[in-house]
């Protein structure tokens, strides 16, 4: 059955308000977008919503107690807390370089978790 939902596109700071006509996970029509990233976002949000995840992990022997990390690609939204639980118990060894892999293939998603910065 056809349904219309309003989504706010989060691809860029503009935050367009999208009117999405869809049937289940299939997008039929999107209006309100100012660029072609809008419909793409709408489709993804219906079928497989994902978010960038940024958090910290413990670091041993570094100048700081925590190392900021981020997912190399948007991560399945429903599994964010699962990912955070893994990262919470992870401890890395300094020195670390920016974009170094901290956790490879997180939860089998194929997405790596990377260091945000250098830490010596």
């Amino acid at each position: 059955m056809e349904q219309t939902d309003t989504l706010i596109c989060i691809t860029c700071p503009m935050g367009c308000s999208l009117a999405v006509v869809h049937e289940g996970q299939t997008v039929i029509q999107v209006t309100g977008n100012h660029c072609n990233r809008g419909p793409r976002y709408a489709q993804a949000e219906l079928s497989d919503p994902r978010r960038m995840v940024a958090t910290t992990v413990k670091v041993r022997g570094g100048s700081k107690r925590l190392l900021p990390v981020y997912t190399a690609a948007p991560f399945p939204k429903s599994r964010i807390f699962e990912l955070l639980a893994v990262l919470r118990n992870l401890e890395v060894e300094a020195p670390v370089r920016a974009d170094q892999v901290v956790l490879a293939n997180a939860l089998g998603t194929g997405i790596d978790v990377l260091a945000s910065r250098d830490l010596s």
């Binding site: 910290t56 413990k58 925590l66 807390f81 639980a85 919470r88």
Partner: peptide, 14 residues
Amino acid sequence: GSEFLVRETKSWDE
């Protein structure tokens, strides 16, 4: 009773 902080950031579980 007027502590600033409650725990370490990583010291919790679900």
